[in-house]
Design a protein around this nucleic acid. Structure first.
Length: 159
DNA sequence: GCCAACGTTGGC
DNA sequence: GCCAACGTTGGC
């Protein structure tokens, strides 16, 4: 079991949007970064848990937990000329870009803001807090995952 | 709106 | 394969 963090701009797609989806699930399309593609392809497994992170907004932070509910599979938006994510270089016979399905798992009792994360000495090494980190999906250490769940007011053992 | 950081692109 | 230029990200 691994742990992850998914960034999204809440104006575009928020945690509440995810919760409102059929089956509370959304294909995490639009990843166009090789490192993140490789995380999805090589390391993510159904049943893995992650945080949903709101970025580029008045209060960046984590509203709750998601679960990976599919294997990596081709991202159809790469072949859709009308999509913002269209990539003419992706060959349908050998898809360059992948996605996984992500499902809402639980709301935090308290939103955990970026400022609050930064106050935690134990999280200093967390990728999301390191300057210049630009990956839209990052791995999260188990100890960090457990600590952040507690900040959010939920018991990680019950997930 | 600013700007640091970093990934990608493309000429050579 | 190098690397400068460019575009994007994301906090502030």
């Amino acid at each position: 079991m691994r742990y992850w963090l998914f960034k999204s701009e809440p104006d575009v797609f928020s945690f509440d949007h995810l919760k409102a989806r059929p089956k509370k699930t959304e294909p995490w399309n639009g990843v166009r970064n090789y490192q993140v593609r490789n995380f999805m392809r090589d390391d993510m497994k159904p049943g893995d848990l992650g945080f949903f992170y709101h970025s580029s907004c008045p209060e960046p932070g984590i509203p709750g937990v998601v679960e990976i509910v599919s294997e990596a599979k081709p991202d159809p938006t790469a072949f859709d000329k009308k999509s913002d994510y269209y990539d003419p270089k992706s060959d349908p016979d050998n898809p360059r870009w992948l996605l996984v399905d992500v499902a809402w798992k639980v709301d935090f009792k308290q939103f955990v803001s970026l400022a609050e994360l930064r106050e935690q000495e134990k999280l200093a090494e967390m990728l999301i807090l390191r300057r210049g980190n630009r990956l839209s999906v990052t791995p999260v250490e188990k100890a960090h995952f457990n600590l952040i769940c507690k900040l959010g007011g939920i018991d990680p053992k019950k997930l």
